[in-house]
Amino acid sequence: MSEKVKVTNLVKTFGTNEVLKGINLTVQDNEVVVIIGPSGSGKSTLLRTLNKLEEPTSGSIVIDNTDIANKNVNMNTIRENIGMVFQHFNLFNNLTVGENIMLAPVELKKETKAEASKQAKQLLDTVGLKEKFSARVQSLSGGQQQRVAIARALAMNPDIMLFDEPTSALDPEMVGDVLEVMKDLAKKGMTMIVVTHEMGFAKEVADRVVFVDDGQILEQGTPDQIFGHPKNERLRDFLNKILNV
C-alpha cells in the first residue's frame, strides 16, 4: 500500500471563522476512510478542500505526489482522477441521465458519443439503473439520482472517490440502494473518503474511521477501536447521542 492522499497542517478560514484548524490526515491506496463528527465540525469542508472546491488557506494537500495547495497546479486534470458525490446529487438538470454521465468523457477524454454511451450504459447497469439511460433527471427519485451521480463520477475512471453525506438528503427507504453501490465500489478496491452519519456503513465498510470536531481530528482508528473503545470524551458523547436515539 502506498500513500494516496497526504494532508499536512491544513487550515481553512472563512473570513475570521477558522473552520479547519490544522488537519493532518493520510489515506492509503485502496483504503476506505469514513469521516464522522457533529454538524459544523468541518468534515464537509475538509472533503471539499481535497479537490479544491474550497481553496485551502494554508497547509499542503499532496495527492499522488502533487501538492494541490500550490496555485500553479492545473486542478482540472487532477479532478479528472477524483470523483465526487454530493449530498444533493447535483445532476445536470438540462441533460438526460445518459448525457449526465457522458458529458465529461466526451468533453475531456474526447471519447466518441458511441464509446461514451456504451460506457454510460455499463455504469448505469452497475448501479442498477440500466433502463433510465434516456430518462430526464427530474423524473428520477432521490435514491436513483444519487446512484446516477455515482455513475457520473465513475465515468472518468477516477482512483479516488469523495462522498459528501451521500445519503443525508434521501428518504430512508432509498438509503440502502445507495449504500449497496458504495459497498460494491469499496470491495472493488476504490480509494474512498466518505463523510457520513451512517454508522452502520462505517462499521461494515471502513478501514479507518476519523472523528472530526471543531476543525480538528480528535481520534482515528479501526471501526472497532472507534465504536468499541472510544478514548476521546467528545467522541464518546457524540456516539452516545447518535447511537442511542
Partner: peptide
C-alpha cells in the same frame, strides 16, 4: 442556477468556460 451545478461540473474536471457553456 444552483451553484451545485457548477461544483458538480468542476468536480468532474470540466474547466470554467466549458462548465458555463455546457451546464
Amino acid at each position: 442556477v444552483d451553484p451545485g451545478q457548477m461544483e458538480a461540473a468542476r468536480s468532474l474536471g470540466l474547466p470554467f468556460g466549458k462548465s458555463m457553456r455546457k451546464v
